[in-house]
């Protein structure tokens, strides 16, 4: 702001307008977030009566207490954690391996293979043929139904390949080959240590996608013990009542009707916090990843 005084009148007006518009937008984005946080820390009665506007009213943790006493939330949390960790691991291994092979200019047929991958971005079998496939493979209603389909995201593959092509100097390959390094050894000892930043990007993209996914789980799983958190969230968030049977604490059951809203707010917080906790650590990689992607979007 130091140079603001030196600006011409036109520019002063312009910058004040920019500042105002952005601030309004900033508040529009931030306000609902603060509202949800405040509501989740308020008492059930205050929320139900619509008294919460900005700050918590009758500060209380009863929303969170009820959420943590709900069995399904724990089952969902455990399952989501499992799907996210194992699923992301599969994604990463498959994607970086394929990206490495397809980044090698001396691989005969690499453009053809790349084309096979890219084509699936624009054309796919759609809902029913995919469902029949999962059924025929016998992985319906098993964790594999969530882990295997989508093991490689083509967009992420392109991002990873672009990164490898642009950042790894080809002299490195020549030098390693002269030293008698095989293709697999080169991948493990040279490429992987140099790809930490792209791996971080992939972990973020895939991890968030797994954590947030619900549709595949909804169509492929019937067994409640396998449900990810999002499915239980959907059940609770989309209904106006909460089944008392799912809450284990009898004292809380009695007050449940008063608390429907505050429970929802607390649930929203519980499901968003894991992503937000990791976010600051990977934020710089995230922006970088989107930019790499945009080069060859």
């Amino acid at each position: 702001m130091k140079k603001f005084r030196d600006l011409s009148l036109d520019d002063k007006v312009f910058h004040i307008a920019v500042f105002t518009i952005l601030t309004i937008f900033f508040i529009i984005v931030l306000y609902p977030c603060i509202f949800v946080i405040s509501a989740s820390f308020s008492s059930g009665r205050a929320v139900q009566a619509g008294k919460v506007v900005l700050w918590p009213v009758d500060f209380s943790l009863e929303g969170y207490k009820t959420v943590f006493h709900t069995k399904n939330v724990w089952i969902g949390f455990r399952n989501s954690l499992f799907y996210t960790i194992v699923g992301t691991l599969i994604n990463i291994v498959m994607t970086i391996t394929a990206a490495y092979c397809l980044s090698r200019k001396d691989l005969p047929g690499r453009n053809g293979i790349m084309l096979l991958f890219t084509f699936t971005m624009f054309f796919n079998g759609g809902l029913i043929p995919s469902y029949i496939l999962v059924q025929k493979l016998g992985i319906l209603n098993t964790p594999f139904a969530l882990l295997l389909p989508g093991a490689i995201g083509v967009y992420n593959l392109i991002v990873a390949r672009t990164f490898l092509v642009n950042t790894i100097p080809s002299e490195l390959l020549e030098a390693s080959m002269i030293d008698g390094c095989s293709d697999i050894k080169y991948f493990i000892y040279v490429i992987l240590p140099l790809s930490k930043s792209i791996l971080a990007v992939l972990v973020l993209f895939y991890g968030v996608a797994h954590w947030n996914a619900y549709f595949n789980a909804m169509i492929y799983l019937h067994d409640k013990n396998l449900f990810p958190l999002t499915l239980f969230l959907r059940e609770i968030l989309m209904s106006t009542q909460i089944d008392p049977g799912t809450v284990q604490d009898p004292e809380m059951q009695a007050r449940l009707q008063d608390m429907v809203a505050v429970i929802k707010y607390a649930l929203i917080m519980v499901s968003v916090v894991p992503v937000l906790v990791i976010y600051p650590f990977v934020q710089k990689y995230f922006v970088k990843g989107v930019m790499i992607g945009s080069v060859k979007g």
């Binding site: 954590w211 947030n212 999002t230 969230l233 959907r234 968030l237 989309m238 929203i268 992503v275 937000l276």
Partner: peptide, 10 residues
């Protein structure tokens, strides 16, 4: 980063 389910709930 908010999931669709939570977004709609929100």
């Amino acid at each position: 980063f908010i999931s669709t389910v939570v977004m709609v709930g929100l």
